[in-house]
């Protein structure tokens, strides 16, 4: 098991957002987390990456057998967790190349691997840029500074392609993307997808899942997973709306 979330309760300030999440992800699987606004999807993504301000009140998360919640955000990244941000941060004065080089070398150091030499690194970076059709000039520019919405999301997937995480968490990567950009971003994810890595795709819409076809779909509502299924569940949701599952929640829970 790559990721095991057991009865996870999380609160932000005084409000309880996650109310007992159970989720197991094996190596090589893609899980989509869907749900209405405010259901706790992004909270789940943030908690897994270690963002400040989220208080775990109950439950456990294991990543590769390690207690994930005890690790700092950087150690989670070094263990192989990658969060593609819903709102990627602009960092003036830090170039994309510098960010990736430092990040990659930190990760390699943690794993006891050799530092990558500059030539090897640049060669790899240039190859990975093609995954999301990243223009070369974005490499030397400051991280996300002045990037369009689409460029920012592409940059997230590009970073993921370079850092090669075991678990990629895509937090509403489709939000704000037009259909062409969506296709490019999804194409990048598909290219990365293999038997050795896993993904959590957090999304409000089924649209993205036409391109990144999940093995499992979970519906999150009011801090709980109320329904799980295969990719067809996403179609059903698209057709019938979230009301359909939330109304049947009691029935579902009873079964």
């Amino acid at each position: 098991m790559l990721l095991e979330i057991k009865n996870l309760h999380v609160r932000v300030e005084e409000r309880e957002i996650l109310k007992g999440i159970n989720l197991s992800i094996r190596v090589g699987e893609v899980h989509a987390i869907m749900g209405p606004n405010g259901s706790g999807k992004s909270t789940l993504a943030s908690v897994l990456a270690g963002r400040d301000g989220y208080i775990v009140t109950k439950g456990e998360v294991f990543f590769n057998g390690k207690n994930l919640l005890e690790l700092s955000p950087e150690d989670r990244a070094r263990e192989g967790v990658f969060l593609a941000f819903q709102y990627p941060v602009e960092i003036p004065g830090v170039s994309n190349t510098n960010l990736l080089k430092t990040a990659l070398n930190e990760i390699r150091k943690y794993r006891g691997e050799e530092q990558l030499d500059t030539l090897e690194f640049l060669k790899m970076v240039k190859e990975r840029m093609t995954y999301v059709e990243m223009p070369q000039n974005l490499l030397s520019r400051s991280v996300n500074e002045g990037f369009s919405g689409g460029e920012k999301k592409r940059n997230e997937i590009f970073q993921m392609a370079v850092l090669e995480p075991k678990l990629g968490i895509l937090d509403e990567t489709d939000s704000g993307l037009d259909i062409d950009a969506l296709r490019v971003v999804a194409g990048g994810v598909n290219r990365l997808r293999n038997k050795e890595n896993s993904f959590i795709v957090v999304t409000h819409y089924q649209r993205l899942l036409n391109y990144i076809v999940p093995d499992f779909v979970h519906v999150l509502s009011d801090g709980r997973i109320i329904k799980s299924g295969d990719k067809d569940l996403a179609f059903e949701l698209e057709e019938k709306g979230y009301d359909w599952v939330t109304e049947n929640e009691s029935e579902f829970a009873a079964r």
């Binding site: 950087e74 941060v89 990040a103 990659l104 930190e106 850092l163």
Partner: peptide, 9 residues
């Protein structure tokens, strides 16, 4: 947080 989530200490 963004930098740490990429592996920076």
């Amino acid at each position: 947080f963004y930098l740490r989530s990429r592996g920076f200490s």
